[in-house]
């Protein structure tokens, strides 16, 4: 069954993208986005995107990594199987620093990458916009605005004329197949 994904249009000029983003947001739309070949400076603010929680996920990963590393070195060396090696103490902070540091970094990195993809809802090998020729160009050389049909303010005619008035070209309605 065909369903409407929403409306898409093309921009060529990065400055117009910023202005359009601010206008669409001012009009009250929430489910709109810009598909761009590279991140545009200032677009986040213009669209009013909230700061991501990703740094907190990274921090949590780092804390877990450091704690696991310290615990592992202390428990294996001083509790589970204490072994005198060169008369060194079974556990001390100084020789534990390198591995604690490395595991902190490792788990921070894993949390960051996994967290980034998870927050973005990826991997997902289907997009409502994938049949839209604009969408294909958005990873090549065009800035593509999309307004989702599920947005409460979405209206086939009004939304279209808003995008056109903001300078979007080749504005079109996009369909997708729903299984």
């Amino acid at each position: 069954m065909k369903k409407t994904a929403g409306i898409s249009g093309i921009f060529q000029d990065p400055d117009r993208v910023l202005a359009a983003a601010a206008e669409i947001r001012r009009a009250g739309y929430q489910r709109f986005d810009f598909h761009t070949p590279y991140p545009l400076h200032g677009l986040d603010q213009a669209m009013g995107i909230k700061r991501t929680v990703l740094p907190w996920i990274s921090l949590a990963g780092g804390i877990v990594g450091g704690a696991v590393a310290l615990h592992l070195q202390w428990w294996t060396g001083a509790v589970d199987y204490p072994l005198v090696i060169g008369g060194k103490p079974f556990f001390a902070f100084e020789p534990s620093i390198p591995i604690t540091f490395e595991l902190t970094v490792l788990l921070t990195a894993i949390a960051t990458v996994v967290g980034m993809f998870a927050l973005n809802g990826l991997p997902k090998w289907f997009s409502k916009w994938q049949n839209d020729p604009h969408f294909r160009r958005s990873m090549d050389d065009a800035f593509v605005v999309t307004v989702d049909a599920e947005d409460p303010l979405y209206h086939a005619e009004k939304t279209r004329s808003l995008l056109e008035s903001l300078g979007a070209e080749q504005v079109r309605t996009v369909d997708y197949d729903e299984e």
Binding site: T36, P39, L40, D44, N120, S138, M139
Partner: peptide, 17 residues
């Protein structure tokens, strides 16, 4: 490509990552 769409809401988190 993990289904990357180039959406700016994704780029926002991507750049932070």
């Amino acid at each position: 490509s993990m289904g990357w769409t180039g959406a700016n809401r994704h780029w926002h988190r991507y750049e932070k990552a």
